[in-house]
Design a protein around this nucleic acid. Structure first.
Lengths: 184, 184
DNA sequence: ACCTGAACACCGTTCAAGT
DNA sequence: ACCTGAACACCGTTCAAGT
């Protein structure tokens, strides 16, 4: 009967969690519940684990990143390396913005939540890799799972100009590892 | 006066922490103190922060890894890429063994503990890079700090045969990114 | 159906009291 | 000097009681 009540609580919890995690990645769940004006039990009803909450917060944004891959491939149909570079840069910007979230996301990965974030991410990478391989720009055979693991450094970087330059250097490094000869 | 007492407590705490962290990276400090037969205040006296304890546990082992770099360079004086590969493989074995410790070590890095672990590690990498560059096997200009950040994936791998193969693949990838043409 | 909030066991941390 | 352990505020989690 109070369905709308539940939906509103869920929305409120997500909004509070989004802000709280942005401020500091280790907010307490009770504090989030309290800030949302909700009992701790209600939070648990909606999000049975901390990972479920974190994931719900970032699911939408990750979906956007995933959708960006095919868009870039279409835009740069003749330059798959350029598409890959732009996607990696977007990933890096997001990672620096969400700096500190890597651990809890990584922990969430151990659950059976693959299909909602991990698999789509791997699939986005796979598209970029295959386009590059077909164009002869990337050496064949790179495992997208390997690549996603390697790219974890993007989440361990602090925001800031120096990190941006470092990300650019490392993305160049990764593209070179993929066999892109044109990479700087 | 009870100096020997203090030294023994410190040793005990380290031994317990070593075992405890190997079993599960998120043991409580009180539990460690208790298992060492020591009051919580004593633990805090010896190790003011959790990071200090973790670091003390791994400091010796990290020192061994650091010492391995010049040893390998001497052993493989004519094949710096081989020396680099072997060092990265050793790093990978250690990382998989200490799987899960990455986060807390990374947190510790934000403190002013650089000189005890971070700087020596960067220096080991620098030696490997310079040897490869001098031999013309690596392209010049790779920042050892960049490389260490990139290598963080080694600590996020679970132990196991599949991970070993994945580590080998990714190390090959990294060597290729360094400009080593002979890398598989 | 959903929510509340008291309650439980435990956490990190401190500090007066002991030796 | 160093250690002990009770104490504090807080954590994640549960669950009887309400509506």
């Amino acid at each position: 009967m109070t369905r709308s009540d539940a939906a509103r609580n869920r929305e409120r919890l997500l909004a509070v969690a989004r802000d709280a995690y942005a401020a500091s990645p280790d907010v307490s769940l009770n504090a989030i519940a309290k800030a949302a004006g909700v009992g701790p039990g209600t939070l648990y009803r909606h999000f049975p684990t901390r990972e479920a909450l974190v994931l719900a917060v970032y699911e939408e944004q990750i979906a956007q990143l995933v959708a960006l891959a095919p868009a870039l491939l279409e835009e740069h149909a003749d330059a798959p390396v350029e598409a890959a570079r732009r996607w990696l840069e977007a990933l890096g910007r997001y990672g620096r913005l969400k700096h500190g979230i890597a651990e809890v996301l990584h922990a969430a990965m151990t659950e059976a939540i693959f299909r909602s974030t991990y698999f789509p991410m791997v699939d986005a990478l796979r598209q970029l890799l295959q386009a590059g391989e077909r164009a002869g720009a990337f050496r064949p055979g790179t495992d997208p799972d390997d690549l996603l693991l390697l790219l974890g450094f993007l989440w361990r970087m602090k925001p800031g100009e120096a990190s941006e330059a470092q990300a650019t250097r490392l993305i160049g490094f990764v593209l070179r590892g993929l066999g892109a000869t044109e990479a700087a």
